[in-house]
């Protein structure tokens, strides 16, 4: 009986986290399209509901009622597993995101490594979908995205090391609290820029959306998917984007902490600050989508391996030497 109550409590907590995440994924799709439209001097979705807020729900309804087509020559088990894997991985990562000093589902010691691990597993959904479709375009898209995600993960990992050098802990709450005096975006500004661009590449956002470059590959790995399975890929993708924004907010923008530590601002709960920071980063993501043309594939690889990786490695050496020389290394 005791176990059962604990289980129910945890399930309640998980639902309390996941339902807002899923709703905000739907809302963020709307926001993305609106920002994209405003940059291009269009209106964007504005018909369904007030300001078109319910557009995503209408889209979801449409996807639910569409037929799920499974190609006859596909590998059916893996074909069905792929969107499930994408969606699950995008959602389980939220377990470690701290919304305030106490509001976190799993306050684990190696939180940032967990986030990094889950985001690096995200490539499997895409590879599985691309391979199981047994078709040329999805397979090409899957191979592209695998190479791209593996490349940019390396620089994200090195950037995380930069932040960890300043914090001295892998716990996400510790990372947030270490930014009490100064957000890491100020001393590590070049790393923030590289993290932002790598996050774009990691989530297959424009200008790095080569896996689904519609002019060359139809829709990349999702070409053969339809109905709710396509929608799951799509939801997983946006949940991943939100997750990367949350990661950026926690690593560089002070997570749930208020920007200035004075009276009226400290009243606002941490979750609100975190959501505002995530939204700020997401609007930047959406603006980039609207204003930057797509990269060529060799340029993408060059940027990842020849520019970002050396730059972030050099910055690790610089940060470590600075902290060591001025005796600022965090010791606990």
């Amino acid at each position: 009986m005791e176990y059962l109550s604990i289980v129910f409590q945890e399930v309640y907590k998980i639902l309390f986290l996941l339902v807002p995440v899923l709703v905000s994924v739907a809302m963020i799709v709307w926001l993305d399209r609106r920002v994209w439209a405003f940059v291009q001097k269009r209106q964007g979705p504005n018909v369904v509901g007030p300001f078109g807020l319910l557009q995503s729900l209408a889209d979801a309804l449409k996807y639910i009622f569409k037929e799920i087509i499974i190609p006859s020559s596909s590998n059916k088990v893996i074909f069905i597993l792929a969107p499930i894997v994408t969606m699950t991985l995008a959602l389980i990562a939220w377990a470690v995101i701290p919304f305030s000093a106490t509001q976190v589902l799993a306050d684990i010691n190696v939180g940032i490594l967990y986030l990094f691990a889950v985001s690096s597993l995200g490539v499997y959904g895409i590879i599985m979908g691309g391979w199981a479709s047994n078709s040329k375009y999805p397979f090409l898209g899957a191979i592209r995205s695998a190479a791209q995600m593996v490349s940019y993960e390396v620089s994200i990992g090195v950037i995380i090391i930069n932040v960890l050098l300043c914090v001295g802990s892998l716990n996400l709450n510790d990372i947030v609290i270490a930014q009490q005096n100064m957000w890491f975006v100020i001393p590590l500004f070049p790393m923030f820029i590289i993290f932002f661009i790598s996050a774009l590449a990691e989530t297959n956002r424009p200008p790095f959306d080569l896996p689904e470059a519609e002019a060359e590959l139809v829709a990349g790995y999702q070409t053969e998917y339809s109905g709710m399975m396509y929608a799951m890929f799509w939801l997983g993708e946006y949940a991943n984007i939100l997750l990367m924004c949350a990661m950026g907010a926690i690593l560089f923008l002070g997570g749930w902490m208020s920007p200035i530590d004075v009276y009226p601002f400290t009243l606002v709960p941490g979750a609100i600050w975190l959501i505002l920071k995530i939204l700020l980063l997401f609007i930047l993501f959406a603006l980039v989508k609207a204003i930057v043309p797509r990269y060529r594939y060799d340029q993408l690889m060059r940027l990842g391996w020849k520019v970002f990786l050396p730059l972030s490695l050099i910055w690790v050496v610089l940060t470590a030497s600075y902290l060591f020389y001025f005796n600022l290394l965090p010791v606990n």
Binding site: V110, L113, Y114, A117, S120, L121, V123, V150, G157
Partner: peptide, 10 residues
């Protein structure tokens, strides 16, 4: 976690 990142992720 390192097992996940290195072996599974790469």
């Amino acid at each position: 976690m390192i097992m996940l990142i290195v072996y599974v992720g790469a």
